[in-house]
Design a protein around this nucleic acid. Structure first.
Lengths: 155, 155
DNA sequence: ACCTCAATGAAAAATATTATCATTTTCCAT
DNA sequence: ATGGAAAATGATAATATTTTTCATTGAGGT
């Protein structure tokens, strides 16, 4: 019984610890924003997040949304992605580890997440990464592939 | 003598034909913008292009720069690239064919073009493309890889 | 429970991009 | 070459997105 209690209490609380590790306050806005990403998932713009929060009756100012998207970015919880529609989008890196690439329809703008790669693909990219690191003197910590084309409906 | 004349006259004129094929006028602004990309090269923002034009004593309104970047995009001469700095950048596709990836320093924002890939790399990406096309029902016409990390000075 | 400082909301400001419209330029037909 | 129709441009206004300001609120340590 006690073990059960610790489990359900501990799991949703873990973000709090993350904020504390960064000397940031685990405010209700921040938790609500993370909740949106966990529920609604992929690549949301600031406006998207703002709207989803309103839909959940959780009013957070748009400036706070922007501030916290940037914070979560610097904390390494979100990453920026861009589909050429004039606004920045964000997605959880935890999710990005599984859904790595993006396929973008250049006609209707639809964006599809592509699931994880095969072993072979993973190895290839490690190889390419090492080669670029040597050639350019960079330390590469991540990468992102965008594929452009026409979706089933537009082709 | 006649042949010589045709040659030097024809080569710099070829953009004119491209515009005509699209039923667009080969105006001096348009040619000046293309000249900037041919001289200054990679991934310029609208503002970058505008500044380079002024430096060349060629005054083109910023609105015209935006309009023509969009036109050249639709004509398939430029492509958009994005480095998360809040503005769109453009580069020539002709050049993109050789300089394919981008390496972005997440600390100072420096962007490095990476030269063309090996045969092996090219084959791998063709393979990945075909697989995605089948899995998602897309027709993929291009792709773009961004690598993120720290440049030699920031590491 | 209090106190401090970070976080927030509302609104203004800064940036980037697009639309409007009168004027200029291209280019086709003469 | 010249004239005229239509497209392109410049200047500016409008819009969209993101950031800043500053007074007020709230989190979390004591």
């Amino acid at each position: 019984m006690i073990i059960f209690f610790i489990e359900v209490k501990d799991l949703p609380e873990s973000w709090k610890d993350v904020f504390h590790r960064f000397n940031k306050k685990a405010t209700s806005s921040r938790r609500a924003i993370l909740e949106v990403f966990e529920e609604k998932g992929q690549h949301l713009s600031a406006e998207d997040v703002y709207e989803h929060l309103r839909a959940k009756k959780k009013k957070v100012g748009i400036a706070t949304v922007y501030r916290n998207l940037d914070l979560l970015l610097r904390m390494g919880i979100l990453r920026k992605v861009n589909f050429g529609d004039g606004r920045e989008h964000y997605e959880m890196i935890r999710r990005a580890a599984r859904f790595h690439h993006h396929l973008i329809c250049t006609r209707c703008g639809q964006v599809v997440d592509c699931e994880e790669m095969t072993q072979e693909e993973e190895e290839f990219l490690q190889h390419l990464r090492k080669e670029l690191e040597q050639r350019q003197g960079f330390v590469i910590h991540s990468y992102h592939i965008y594929f452009y084309g026409l979706c089933p409906r537009c082709r």
